[in-house]
Structures are given as C-alpha cells and as structure tokens.
C-alpha cells in the first residue's frame, strides 16, 4: 500500500475549511457580487420573471404569502370596499377602478429582506384619488388596508397615503390584471417604502383615526417603512429609469 502513497495530505479538511472560508467571504462581500449579477440579468430580463427568477443573484421577485394558500379572485368577482370615517362609502369593481384616472409609475420594488427588482412598471389609481372621492371626515388620520387573504393588514398615515407615488395598482410588469402570486387582481404599491407596505390582494381601504401596526409590524418591522431610513437599512431610493 506504500507504492503510490508517496505523500498524504488532509485534502478533505482543506476542502471543508476552504468552503467555509468562501462562505464567510460570500456573506460579507456577496452583496456586491449579487448587485453585479442582478444588474446584468436585469438588462436581459427586466422584472426578473420566468427563468431569470431561478438564477441565483437575479433581481427577481420572491413570492411571499402569510397564509396557507394563495388567495385568488377573478376580476369579475373582485370588489374594493372603501369604509370607515368617510361620508361616501363605496364599493369599486375592477372595471370601476380601471375607469378612474390612471397613473403609471416605473420604480423599483425593494424588499426589507434585501432583494430588489429594478424598474418595475406599475399602473393604477392614485390612492389619494380614491380617498378624495370618499369624502373623508375630519377625524380621519390614517388609512388601513385589508387583504382578501383574510389575515394581512397594513396602514399609512393620511399624509403618506396622499403622496403621488402611492397607488392602488391593477397592472404590474405589463400584466393586467396583476397575477395572483403578485397580489392581483388589485394590490397596493407604496413606492417609497419597503415591500411589506404594498399590501397584496387588496380588498378594503378603511379610513381610521389612528395607524394600526400591520402584520409584519406586529412582528418587529418599522411602521414608517421608508426605504433607506428604517429597519436599520441604508438602501438607495427607488426612483427608476
């Protein structure tokens, strides 16, 4: 057995230790590598859908839901209720919403867990337009959002809700209605805040006298979720091309 065993080295241990070292380096510096790869893939596949979503480092959506299954509603059955401290309670159908003045935005979607999809195309109605039509009572200070998944909730102050980059979206990534996995047929898009503010499967907008922390905020995320200025993160603003 000594014929070929002229040398013996602990190569197995070196492989393991080498991988662990690379793993630490990847944790510490992987973000810049990811940004480079993500940027390159985004040029080829904007929005990171389809096969691009399978490439590690691609800037693609990760599909989250907090319930056991994905809620789904057709555009025929879909309704959006506007309730609470208003003089003019309304129920919109999908067609009603599409008939309101339209707003298009092309802006990034930034998740608080770190992933970001650049230059997503959104289309919908300004939230402020819907609030204006509801005739808000003076006591109202906040807007609460309910999802037809039956669990998820979010909220904004009335000032935040009046911004011109906060929309009730019915089109996203060129798809109308928005697909079920992305929160369709209608979802909220709060451009200046982390993704958990952009309530998916939106079913009710409720005017309230105070902000009520939403689903993830009860679990520790910041209520005022400004991108780059909350949750201990320093992400760049989301203004897209």
């Amino acid at each position: 057995m000594t014929l070929t065993a002229s040398w013996k080295r602990p190569v197995g241990r070196r492989i393991v230790l080498g991988m662990v070292t690379l793993g630490f380096a990847g944790i510490a510096f992987g973000e810049s590598v990811q940004r480079f790869i993500g940027g390159a893939i985004s040029k080829v596949s904007p929005g990171g859908g389809g096969l691009a979503s399978l490439i590690p480092g691609a800037n693609s959506f990760r599909i989250y839901t907090v319930t056991d299954s994905f809620p789904s509603e057709s555009t025929q059955d879909y309704t959006l209720k506007v309730t609470g401290l208003i003089d003019n309670p309304t129920t919109y159908t999908f067609e009603d919403l599409v008939g309101l003045p339209q707003t298009s935005l092309t802006k990034d979607f930034q998740c608080v867990t770190g992933w970001r999809v650049p230059n997503v195309h959104w289309k919908g109605v300004l939230l402020s337009e819907i609030i204006k039509r509801a005739s808000v009572q003076p006591r109202a200070q906040a807007v609460l959002f309910h999802s037809f998944d039956g669990v998820y909730t979010e909220s904004l102050t009335l000032d935040q809700a009046s911004r011109n980059d906060v929309i009730v979206a019915y089109e996203m990534l060129g798809q109308r209605p928005i697909s079920s996995e992305h929160g369709g047929p209608v979802r909220l898009y709060v451009a200046p805040m982390y993704g958990y503010k952009s309530c998916k499967w939106l079913s009710e907008i409720e005017l309230s006298d105070k902000v009520i922390p939403g689903y993830w905020e009860d679990l520790g995320y910041d209520v005022n979720a400004w991108i780059g200025r909350s949750n201990g993160r320093s992400d760049a603003p989301v203004d897209g091309a």
Binding site: V20, G23, F24, G26, I27, G30, V33, T113, G114, W115
Partner: peptide, 27 residues
Amino acid sequence: LVMLMTGVVMHWFGPFPVSWRTGATFI
C-alpha cells in the same frame, strides 16, 4: 456548514449588518 451559516444569517438576521442578509441569500 456553509448552508447552515448562510441560513442562520438569513433567518436570524437581527444581529448582523443588513448587507450580510443579501450576501448570505446569494451564497
């Protein structure tokens, strides 16, 4: 071991710098 390290950073991200979560996810 690397999946364990990166997975811990992804799941219990609180004590770590925020860029680590992206790096760990990528790895």
